[in-house]
Amino acid sequence: MDGQIAQISRRPGASTVFLTLRDPSADLSLTVTTNRDVLDSGAPNLADGARVVVHAKPDFFPARGTLSLRADEIRQVGIGELLARIEHLKKLLRAEGLFDRARKRPLPFLPRRIGLITGRASAAERDVRDNARRRWPAIDFRIVNVAVQGPGAVPQILDALAVLDADDSVDVIVLARGGGSVEDLLPFSDEALCRAVFACRTPVVSAIGHETDVPLVDYVADLRASTPTDAAKRIVPDLAEEVRLIGGARQQLRRRVTQLLDREQQRLDAIRSRPVLARPEAMVDQRETEVRALRERGTRCLSHRLDRAGGELEHTLARLRALSPAATLQRGYAIVQRPDGAVVRSPDEVGAGDRLRVRLAGGELTATVEG
């Protein structure tokens, strides 16, 4: 089994060495006893916080109800082996999709409150807090101080992460730590921590070490900042820059509105300069002149037609009069009719004693046939 040394107890002159072996991902420790010669041969320079591989047998003490390990081989894990394990874990997490960009959550433009997980009174805490407030003075923080290296780092970070993720007022969580050796940054390549960051519903920003330091949590986090200072710049907008952008946008909007008003005013002036709007009565006067001309033309046409019709009527009347029986009567002729109105055209049509009506130009006469 492997783990991290939390404590080494070497009593002067004693052949037995007591070790406390801790699981970096869980709050679990076991006591390991071994012979001094085993320790000196396998890990002579072993110190607190070192990663080791132990071959041991369990010892259970029923009276005390405790379990311990009796090690017959202890080997300190070197940097090369640590890096190989981290690389293997990296491939595993990538295959499971924990590094997938499509699953990363967007950061809010201006978070109401920033949750900060960092070491107590650390430079990383000052860098994030001071730079964020320099950019946006009213920004609020909820800071949880934890151990950022050593055997207890991972459990404390996991607890802090759970607390901040459950806080609805926290809009983004920052994991911040200054630079350090590969061993110092091991907690941030822990599998349990990477999975916890992936499971958070709140966006997580990783700001671990220097720009060249890339622990596995950087790949899982929703945003990787090269340094704690960079994290503050990436999370919080610059108030002065935003004010400048708003001022520029307002000026641009004012220019566009002014241009629009000027363009519309020119259109109105052009429309108003048209004759129909400049002198609207001119159109009425023009229509009045046209109506007057049409009326005069209509009057002339009607008078001409009436005159022509009158001439034709007089001509027809003259012809009618010339052809009328009355005109013949005017020349001294008379029309003789029997009482029944029949015209007498021959003397044979009447007999002696018949009464006749004689129509003259000036009236009628009644006559009696004598012979």
Rank of each mutant, 00 (worst) to 15 (best):
A225P: 06
P111Y: 12
A327V: 00
A240G: 07
G298Q: 14
L67E: 09
A192M: 14
A14Q: 15
L302V: 04
R300L: 11
L110T: 06
T328S: 12
R177I: 03
I157D: 14
I235Y: 10
Y333I: 01
N131K: 13
P58L: 11
L89K: 11
L116N: 05
G363W: 13
A153H: 06
I271E: 13
R357S: 05
L329Y: 11
R112V: 01
D262Q: 15
R103H: 08
V174K: 11
E349D: 06
V291P: 00
S346D: 15
L19S: 03
E241L: 13
D184I: 03
R300E: 10
R357L: 11
R103F: 02
T34N: 03
P111L: 13
R85F: 05
R263V: 00
Q286I: 01
G332M: 02
G332S: 01
P187K: 06
A327D: 04
T289C: 02
P151I: 02
D230Q: 13
L294A: 15
R142N: 05
A124M: 07
E242C: 08
T227H: 06
W136S: 07
I139L: 09
G150M: 07
V146R: 13
T118G: 04
R10F: 01
R142W: 03
D37P: 00
V343R: 15
R112H: 13
Q266S: 09
P215Y: 12
A50E: 13
R234I: 00
A270H: 11
L19W: 04
L185S: 04
G311H: 15
L253M: 15
D262P: 01
T289G: 06
G3S: 05
C301G: 10
L92C: 03
K233L: 11
V54F: 03
S189M: 07
E364C: 00
K104E: 07
L46E: 08
D48N: 15
Q259L: 12
T289A: 13
E290L: 15
R297W: 06
A352E: 14
T34M: 15
P280R: 08
Q149L: 05
Q251V: 02
K90C: 09
V170Q: 07
R10T: 07
N35M: 13
G353D: 11
S303D: 10
A63W: 08
R255S: 09
A293S: 14
A147Q: 15
V197Y: 12
T328Y: 02
G353L: 09
A367V: 11
L93R: 06
L320C: 02
L306N: 09
R255V: 02
D167L: 04
R10K: 15
R129I: 12
I114D: 07
Q251T: 06
D190H: 01
T16P: 00
L313V: 01
A166E: 11
G341M: 03
A342K: 12
G248R: 15
R224P: 03
G152N: 15
F61H: 14
A278H: 08
A278P: 01
D222T: 04
V236H: 12
E288P: 00
R64E: 06
I86N: 14
R357K: 12
L116P: 00
R305T: 02
E349K: 04
L360H: 11
D130T: 12
A71H: 10
G351K: 14
L294Y: 07
L158Y: 09
A102C: 02
R244P: 00
D23F: 01
K90N: 12
